[in-house]
Nucleic acid binder design. Structure first.
Length: 607
DNA sequence: GCCGTTTTCGGCCCGACTGTTTTCAGTCG
């Protein structure tokens, strides 16, 4: 039986080779190539194994002919002879120690060489040696380094047990708490989220925050006295302070003067690959970029602007827009900064005009407390509460889509009766709200979220469909079918004329499970041809479709619908996170079906 | 080892912080 490798495992393997080359003082660009390939594979959204099966390894950025041939050997034989050669004369323990924060390749190599670490117990042994003061005896190591290593081991263990990446809304609210505290400091002019949070990535590791100030010392002092700070990790004089909060989350604060605040926002928003590409682009025009500004590298360069700081010999930028403008680029929204062609698009002034939360006109995936008698979870808010809330959000329509009544507990007729009853209630509310409001009242649609059974059969008797305005189908069981069977299952379900939406299409649960396997090309083609819509589900653990698949879908012309899947009215506010996913997928208003006004939306529903 | 709307050869992002090494290397983002 051949061993299979996850993307994470392959990335780790490539990083080990990079680490080995670092110890061996190999060409640093070769090392970078391995690290790039590892990062690319780690962030890839298809399984590398699947890409290999389909002979599409060349689609991975950073994977060229050499690494591709090593992966080929890996999938065929379970090992790579060349990699074994590279690692042969290095202590095995060193690769284990790399997982400890603060220990890089050279330190790991030295520790593994100097200390006797038993296989399988490397980290425990290292910890014991450290406690006995043995690490400080190694040349080049001191008391402080020994202490740092011991603390690194503690952090490593915590990471092993519980620390997962935060879900976007969790990180968002945590960042706002910190920003609220910072804004009470008189020395703080303004603060902004940076990094993956500003780019609205679905999961966030550490939170980075930018602070604009003319008195960094005062801000650093203020922040280290934040009541929720457990430990200060790093503390600079001017530009950085890094802490761990009581909840174990890390916050990095970056400080900058008003003159260069725009340059810093750009620099620390990332992504890393966007910044690398941007700096390469700048270098071609003889400019060098940093968080302080832009340096002109040649005499003959022609440039513009009056923000030159002759002491520092750089151009400074208060606003990010002027930083990009200086490079000849349109301002790039943070969500697009993933090195997927946004720089070229910005040069050519053809960046997409991204969808915004205010464009949304309705929410079609909501669970009310109507007694639908489902075997899944019911909603907690009444239809009236939901309607009021949606009116407040400026929506023109709302679709109630509880789970289907359980098919094992009811006879067909009973199910039909329940659906009919819900329709009657909705008709009545629609009627009375027409009388209540002078303006156009919000329109309530009778929807349903229907399970797709493993065979592809829908969990609702045919006789019930005529009482529905539309339905969503989704998968809640049997996640492990093969890609081919799963694809058939979905297509079969989507074929029914009342089915308009494929809900949370990948089935992934962030931090918990990967999605099931589907042939997306086939799904996209089917949706395009039959006017079916793929959902971006705003549930924090889902955010599904993921952004990369949104990008592929809209490139094909497939329409997307953004729904909150709310079970309580206060969850309707999650819409902005789904919109963020769409924006990261380059979606414009026209790509999103629930930006249409009521009349046009109803036309689409009837198609 | 990868990569290409100025290149299939000749390039390849940038700086802060830390510890201990008296001038810098390692790690990180």
């Amino acid at each position: 039986m051949k061993k299979t490798f996850t993307n994470q495992e392959i990335a780790e393997l490539l990083r080990e080779i990079a680490a080995a080359y670092i110890v061996k003082n190999e060409d640093r660009f070769k090392i970078m190539a391995y690290e790039n390939a590892a990062a690319s594979i780690e962030h890839a959204t298809s399984d590398v194994k699947d890409l290999w099966d389909d002979r599409k390894l060349d689609q991975l950025a950073g994977v060229g002919p050499n690494i591709a041939s090593y992966l080929d050997e890996l999938f065929k034989t379970g090992k790579v002879t060349h990699f074994d050669e590279v690692k042969k004369d290095l202590p095995k323990a060193m690769f284990v120690l790399l997982a400890i924060p603060g220990i890089g390749p050279k330190t790991a190599y030295q520790l593994a060489g100097e200390l006797k670490l038993r296989q399988g117990k490397e980290i425990v042994d290292l910890e014991n040696m450290g406690k006995k003061g043995k690490i400080r005896e190694i040349e080049g190591f001191g008391e402080k380094t020994e202490k740092d290593i011991l603390e690194g081991i503690v952090r490593f263990r915590k990471g092993q047990t519980k620390e997962k990446r935060m879900l976007l809304p969790v990180a968002d609210s945590l960042a706002h708490e910190v920003l609220d505290y910072l804004e009470q400091c008189p020395a703080v002019i303004r603060g902004d989220a940076l990094g993956s949070l500003r780019r609205m990535v679905s999961t966030i590791g550490d939170i980075d925050i930018a602070v604009e100030t003319t008195d960094p010392k005062k801000v650093i002092d203020w922040f280290t006295r934040y009541p929720k700070v457990r430990k200060v990790l790093d503390q600079g004089q001017q530009s950085l302070v890094r802490v761990i909060l009581d909840n174990g989350k890390q916050i990095d604060l970056r400080l900058q003067t008003p003159e260069s605040y725009g340059a810093m926002l750009q620099y620390f928003t990332g992504s890393k690959s966007h910044n690398i590409s941007l700096r390469e682009f700048a270098l071609k025009n003889e400019m060098s970029l940093s968080e302080h500004g832009i340096k002109i590298l040649s005499q003959k360069s022609k440039f513009k602007g009056q923000n030159y700081n002759s002491k520092l010999k750089i151009y400074q930028f208060e606003k990010e827009e002027s930083f990009y403008d200086f490079l000849g680029l349109d301002w790039i929204p943070p969500e697009l900064r993933e090195d997927q062609g946004e720089i070229t698009a910005a040069v050519q002034h053809r960046l997409p005009k991204l969808i915004e939360p205010k464009d949304i006109k309705g929410d079609l995936h909501l669970h009310s407390d109507f007694p639908i008698e489902t075997s899944h979870d019911e909603g907690g808010s009444s239809i009236e509460e939901i309607v009021r809330k949606c009116e407040g959000l400026g929506y023109e329509y709302v679709g109630l889509s509880e789970h289907n009544p359980s098919i094992s507990q009811h006879r067909e007729n009973e199910i039909i009766t329940i659906i009919k009853k819900k329709k009657a209630l909705i008709d009545q509310i629609n009627y009375s709200s027409e009388k209540r409001t002078n303006n156009l009242p919000i329109k309530i649609l009778n929807g349903l979220e229907i399970d797709i059974q493993p065979s592809g059969k829908l969990a609702l008797p045919e006789g019930a469909f005529k009482y529905l305005d539309y339905a969503i189908v989704s998968i809640h069981s049997s996640f492990n079918l093969s890609r081919a069977r799963m694809t058939d299952r979905v297509l079969k379900a989507l074929s029914h004329s009342k089915i308009k939406i494929f809900g949370h299409p990948t089935g992934r649960m962030l931090n918990r499970r990967e999605g099931y396997e589907l042939d997306w090309e086939v799904i996209f083609d089917f949706c395009l041809k039959n006017n079916k819509w793929l959902e971006i589900n705003c549930w924090p653990e889902r955010l599904d479709l993921p952004d990369n698949l949104v990008l592929q879908a809209i490139k094909k012309g497939v329409k997307i619908i953004i729904n909150t899947d709310s079970h309580q009215v206060d969850q309707l506010k999650m819409m902005k996170y789904g919109v963020a996913v769409a924006r990261r997928g380059w979606a414009e208003k026209n790509d999103i079906i629930n930006t249409l006004n009521l009349n046009r939306f109803m036309d689409e529903l009837d198609k």
